[in-house]
């Protein structure tokens, strides 16, 4: 069955709501409006206003309420419209959801999923274009997942609800219109995945950068460089085994990160490759990241600020010079 990334997300939500009465969706405009990105369209009619619950503009309040509802025996899916607005409930995510199990000596689980859209590329300017997945991945006690494929857009939500930990699911509006085949395979939220086999260089990417990495690999193949593409999928905890296995095979690596370079998730991955596979490398690890500017509105400047296939191609070629 061929569906879009958006439809895959909606299908995952519908299945989660249908499967378990404890599951409910709460967030701004998830009900009557149908979701800012129309992800939850139709679910209000199907599941009613109790379980597809519109919330006022109170991100701190309703994310915290999601944590409380999880403590009270429910399995909330909280939608924060975009990662940009998630800085308002950052306190509840970091100071409560992530900490509670440990600080209570294991007494209180927080089986909560927080969904939010992330990333740039749609000319929405600086306050609607952040990529803070890497920030969140800094924090122990939460899990961070970044679906880049149709199967992951569909299946990661269910896996996150089954996980028993607070899980942040980052969704990519840049990918919402992409279509693909939905397989029947179950997905996990534990492993990275090789999306394209290769032998001469490894491109590590996540989220909306994965299709860019694959496009770059196509171009490189045409020029005689057979690159492997690793989709991180899970940003915390990192599956370094898969990354290191690939790097040890290809001996070269480029990390693509839509976040800013300084203090980024890409920096963490580079550091771990250095710590664990330094002597397997034939070249220093390279990175392609967001330029260190607030994302500007004009298309040409926005495109210049973001990782693009051409930049990835250039970075991979640079490993051979």
């Amino acid at each position: 069955m061929t569906i879009t990334y958006r439809e895959a997300l909606r299908m995952g939500l519908r299945e989660a709501l249908a499967r378990d009465q404890r599951v409910f969706l709460v967030g701004e405009d998830v009900g009557r409006y149908g979701g800012t990105y129309a992800v939850s369209k139709g679910l209000l009619d199907e599941f009613g206003p109790e379980r597809v619950r519109d919330a006022p503009l109170s991100e701190l309040g309703f994310v915290g309420a999601g944590i409380g509802a999880a403590l009270g025996g429910l399995k909330p899916i909280v939608e924060v419209m975009t990662v940009n607005f998630s800085l308002l409930p950052l306190d509840q995510i970091v100071n409560t959801a992530a900490i509670l199990r440990h600080m209570s000596g294991g007494q209180f689980a927080v089986p909560l999923v927080i969904r939010m859209s992330t990333g740039a590329g749609r000319q929405l300017a600086a306050q609607h274009s952040h990529s803070f997945e890497g920030w969140y991945a800094h924090v122990p006690g939460i899990k961070i997942v970044a679906p880049a494929t149709i199967d992951d857009a569909h299946g990661m939500l269910g896996a996150a609800l089954d996980d028993g930990n607070p899980v942040l699911v980052f969704e990519y509006p840049a990918l919402f219109e992409t279509a693909g085949e939905l397989s029947s395979a179950r997905v996990d939220i534990a492993h990275a995945q090789v999306r394209r086999q290769g032998t001469r260089a490894t491109i590590v990417a996540y989220g909306a950068s994965v299709p860019k990495a694959l496009a770059a690999a196509d171009q490189l193949a045409a020029e005689g460089i057979n690159a492997e593409v690793v989709d991180l999928r899970v940003l915390r905890p990192l599956d370094m085994d898969t990354v290191l296995a690939s790097v040890r095979k290809t001996r070269r690596a480029v990390i693509v990160d839509e976040g800013w370079r300084s203090g980024s998730l890409s920096a963490e991955i580079v550091a771990r490759i250095m710590e664990q596979a330094f002597y397997d490398l034939d070249a220093p690890v390279a990175r392609v990241c967001r330029e260190e500017v607030p994302i500007p509105y004009p298309r040409h400047l926005e495109e210049a600020a973001l990782p693009q296939p051409e930049k990835i191609v250039a970075a991979v070629k640079g490993l051979f010079q």
Partner: peptide, 10 residues
């Protein structure tokens, strides 16, 4: 406070 709201909701 938000936590209490969620416990009440549950």
């Amino acid at each position: 406070l938000p936590l209490a709201v969620g416990l009440g909701l549950a």
